[in-house]
């Protein structure tokens, strides 16, 4: 355990260190970006939902993507992961040009996302949901599928890995239940655990905390930090500012399709442009419920 702790601290610390010298301005280059997007634009009729000039995501860090409703965060996720087609723009993943690549291929090379509206596969069991996530399964090929001896042992190891994750996400008592019988928060957990089954290098979570009770939120935060400790880069969309403040190494702010601010959580949340974007100009309110927690500590308990 002490060893784990040391690793964990070092991962968090190294993410901090890497980003500490980065200037907080929109589109700023990062020392070691896993993803770089340029001129990404998507319009729906007359509405430009996304218009991102340049943005980079630092490898190994937890980056939050925030912005008011309709800012274009989900659309940006959809574009980057190939679920929607950009009108223009290019982006790279691990230095490789991936614009226009099929979404399943992006998932295979390590860019795995979850959905704002949770997509649990309702009429499948929790464990089958999990197993589906594992990569390179022999039994997924048509002709190998009918010869169980070819994939039985792999199936077993996939199942064991799934059980491990389910335990971590506190779903181990639901293993044989249909995913459709889970609560909304449990489905969020399942979706996240399932995404981890696919061994992501970059995991993109769209509002992982939405509809999750405060106690569960704390454990979710723990899970997200664990992902970083295990070397996974995390990009997540979230509206809960205290949570964002608590776990992110870096925050990117979108409004009306554009990146309007970037920086460490403390800096960004004091940024006048950000406060204006969220609350409209000329107001006195704070973004978090306890004003101090923005700048001082990270005990951000909003309950």
């Amino acid at each position: 355990m002490p060893n784990d702790q040391a690793v964990s601290n070092s991962m968090a610390a190294s993410a901090h260190a890497a980003l500490s010298t980065v200037e907080p301005r929109p589109g700023v280059p990062k020392p070691d970006p896993i993803m770089v997007a340029d001129h990404v634009r998507r319009s729906f009729g007359g509405l430009t939902a996304v218009n991102v000039e340049h943005v980079e995501i630092q490898r190994g860090a937890i980056t939050a993507l925030i912005g008011p409703n309709g800012a274009g965060k989900t659309t940006f996720f959809n574009l980057i992961t190939g679920f929607d087609d950009a009108n223009e723009g290019t982006w790279t993943f691990n230095g490789r040009q991936v614009a226009g690549t099929a979404p399943y291929k992006l998932a295979r090379i390590g860019m795995v996302r979850t959905f704002q509206l949770t997509k649990a596969l309702s009429r499948m069991t929790v464990i089958d949901n999990m197993r589906l996530g594992a990569k390179h399964q022999t039994g997924e090929r048509f002709f190998a599928a009918i010869l169980p001896f070819l994939w039985n042992s792999q199936e077993k190891s996939v199942g064991e890995r799934a059980m491990g994750l389910l335990e971590r996400f506190n779903l181990h008592e639901k293993v044989e239940d249909f995913a459709g019988s889970l609560s909304g928060g449990q489905r969020k957990l399942l979706e996240m655990a399932r995404a981890l089954m696919a061994d992501p290098e970059l995991i993109m979570l769209d509002e992982p905390m939405a509809g999750v009770n405060p106690a569960l939120k704390q454990s979710l935060l723990g899970h997200i930090k664990t992902m970083r400790e295990e070397g996974t880069t995390v990009l997540f969309v979230e509206h809960d500012m205290d949570m964002v403040h608590d776990i992110s190494d870096w925050v990117i702010v979108m409004a009306q399709g554009e990146v309007i601010a970037e920086g460490p959580p403390d800096t960004v949340m004091k940024d006048q442009a950000v406060i204006d974007a969220y609350l409209g100009a000329h107001h006195e309110a704070q973004l978090t419920e306890t004003g101090e927690s923005l700048t001082e500590s990270s005990d951000g308990d909003s309950a």
Partner: peptide, 12 residues
Amino acid sequence: EDEAAVVSLGKN
């Protein structure tokens, strides 16, 4: 159940 979810897990 949900095509998009399966795509998101890297299946063709």
